[in-house]
Design a protein around this nucleic acid. Sequence first.
DNA 1: TATTGTTATACTCTATAACTATA
DNA 2: TATAGTTATAGAGTATAACAATA
Lengths: 134, 134
Amino acid sequence: MSRPRLGYLLKHAGLRLAELTGPALEPYGIDGRELAVLSVLGTPEPLSQQEAAQRLGIDRTTMVALVDALERKELVGRRPHPGDRRKNMVEPTERGRDTLERAARAVDAAEEAFLAGLPGDDARLLRDLLGRLV
Amino acid sequence: MSRPRLGYLLKHAGLRLAELTGPALEPYGIDGRELAVLSVLGTPEPLSQQEAAQRLGIDRTTMVALVDALERKELVGRRPHPGDRRKNMVEPTERGRDTLERAARAVDAAEEAFLAGLPGDDARLLRDLLGRLV
DNA sequence: TATTGTTATACTCTATAACTATA
DNA sequence: TATAGTTATAGAGTATAACAATA
């Protein structure tokens, strides 16, 4: 292609990266979206479902199914918010924290492999530039 | 987020870019995927449906619907390959070439706006780095 | 009245399988 | 036998609308 669109580049870079991260996550029984949810829930600050959804820029109705799946795998647990019973606070289980840690390392390695072709600290630079756009 | 995943950054950069390119394309009656198809068909070299699909890394069954849509809008035309009647050669119409040119400029402007926050040469650099990964 | 979680539903994007016509 | 295009279909991923419980 003479001069590929930026949208095309972003999309296909994502697709090619997913070809590495998908298999890397397989041993842990989760996919990339579930890892992302686990990540935002893994911080010290406890989050409700909706807060977690907002952090990830996804809809609260989408979050329901994601938390359902993680709960079925016993990686997170729902409990009612003490002061506001409309809210579900969602927290990783012990196993969830362990899975998060190990799966995150596996994805780190996959990302590194994906970026291995970039010389010098271009990998860090790319991540930096993208971070400023998101 | 402490250190967002590369996959997250690519996906959400794409989403935010689409918020600009979508409206930018609206006056031309096509979306980003249709523009991409129009682009690969807009080169001097005539392409069959399947060749166009391969250039864009999409399935030939997906290309059917894309060409259908573009043909309905009279932006491309199908004609049988002279030497191999299994193949459809797909070419932009006059109107298709005109739309391609103007829509491409509109998307160029949207991309520029999207990247406007990056200082100096960083926009070109980002495109460069992504190009090496795809 | 407004918000949280939930369900039902629908829409977009994509691929797989099977068909047809050609080679 | 193999390939190009097509169709039917199914599976992700996502969002909208409507509802119940709670504020």
